[in-house]
């Protein structure tokens, strides 16, 4: 197809992607170098029946004028990146200089918002992903072995936790683990502790979020593995039987190697999805004990009076860098394959 024809077909997509994906990324990079204007304060007098008092207030008109002039705020260079709510370079140096032992370093770093979010994001990504793959595989193998009449309903109900948006899915679970909800109450009676609450301790909150993550994503792994199982070559399976492999050995030496590329695919998708974990934190009202990078950005943009664009943009840039680091092995491999082909 000549380039001209190609362009005449693809330009609408291209324009949409340039305007709303490429440009915003540039805009984020630009915004991250600016911070909000300092507030212009005026001292005014308010006089009431009991005399006049001096009052400091924000000069709204002056602020509006400033904002109109420099909408992005004032230039701050890389200052936002290094401040206490992002990379916190000074604080980190200080922590390493003054801390006695490792656990103190850890505790103090966990108090820095960016690192707290980063550590949760990474833990979530690297704990949930393997569990999803393992659980999905087990379910797929089991479903593959049950009578056909069960398969349809199982797939139907499996799709629901995955296709329901995380905010809604996590709310459904959140209400159940409430101390007055069915799971919360059940746990209290199992452990005989009427004050037990999954929401109270940070550790339990983390675990709850991980469990939610596995519950939400295992169906994806299950569906992909299940589809893969339908295509395991019968010949290989039968020759393994003829060669005397038992049930376990057939799974170990035929099924698993055959499904390996699918596992890689699931792992890739899951790494990407889990890295942007965000809605469950809102659904479970877990922000006090667990925040993620995406949540930090969301929070900055939601800041009560005026959104912290600079801060959100800096976190966004750092997140994008994180995504690229995460994808680097995949991108590199694809690049090599591409070069080999041409």
């Amino acid at each position: 197809m000549p380039h001209k024809t190609f362009l005449s077909f693809i330009w609408p997509s291209l324009v949409a992607m340039l305007l709303f994906i490429a440009l915003p990324i540039v805009s984020v990079g630009f915004q991250s170098l600016y911070v909000e204007h300092e507030q212009v304060l005026v001292v005014g007098e308010t006089c009431g029946p009991f005399g006049c008092t001096e009052e400091v207030s924000v000069d709204a008109a002056a602020m509006a004028a400033l904002r109109a002039e420099q909408p992005a705020g004032q230039f701050n260079g890389l200052g936002t990146y290094t401040n206490a709510s992002h990379l916190a370079t000074d604080e980190i140096a200080e922590i390493f200089a003054t801390s006695e032992n490792f656990s103190e370093i850890r505790n103090r770093i966990m108090n820095l918002p960016f690192y707290k979010a980063l550590i949760f994001t990474l833990s979530y990504t690297f704990i949930v992903t393997p569990l999803v793959i393992i659980l999905g595989f087990i379910i797929a193998v089991a479903v593959n072995a049950v009578p056909a009449m069960l398969k349809g309903p199982v797939i139907f109900f499996s799709l629901i936790p995955m296709l329901v948006t995380p905010l809604v899915g996590s709310l459904v679970l959140f209400w159940m683990i409430d101390s007055r909800g069915i799971i919360g109450a059940a746990l209290q009676s199992i452990f005989g502790d009427p004050s037990l609450s999954l929401k109270a301790s940070p550790t339990l909150t983390w675990i709850t979020l991980f469990v939610y993550g596995v519950w939400h994503s295992a169906p994806f792994a299950f569906v992909v593995f299940y589809a893969g199982l339908q295509t395991v070559p019968r010949d290989t399976m039968e020759s393994a039987m003829v060669d005397g492999a038992n049930r376990w050995e057939r799974i170990r030496f035929v099924t698993i190697p055959y499904l390996m590329p699918l596992a890689t695919f699931i792992a890739l998708m899951q790494l990407m999805d889990n890295f942007r974990v965000f809605e469950p934190i809102i659904g479970f009202s877990a922000a006090a004990s667990a925040t993620s990078l995406s949540y930090l950005i969301y929070n900055d943009l939601r800041a009560a009076e005026s959104p912290l664009f600079g801060s959100a943009a800096a976190t966004s840039m750092l997140t994008i860098i994180g995504v690229i680091i995460l994808l680097l092995p995949v991108l590199r491999q694809n690049w090599r394959e591409f070069n080999r082909k041409t």
């Binding site: 992607m17 709303f20 994906i21 440009l23 915003p24 990324i25 540039v26 805009s27 984020v28 915004q31 909408p71 992005a72 790494l271 990407m272 890295f275 942007r276 965000f278 990078l293 995406s294 950005i297 969301y298 900055d300 943009l301 959104p307 664009f309 959100a312 943009a313 966004s316 997140t319 994008i320 995504v323 690229i324 995460l326 994808l327 995949v330 991108l331 694809n334």
Partner: peptide, 23 residues
């Protein structure tokens, strides 16, 4: 396209949103 699709799929949407708001 594959590369772009991969990167954009991985990118949290909220990072893009922070680029939209101001403009």
């Amino acid at each position: 396209l594959l590369m772009a699709a991969l990167v954009f799929r991985a990118m949290p949407h909220v990072t893009l949103v922070s680029g939209y708001l101001l403009p």
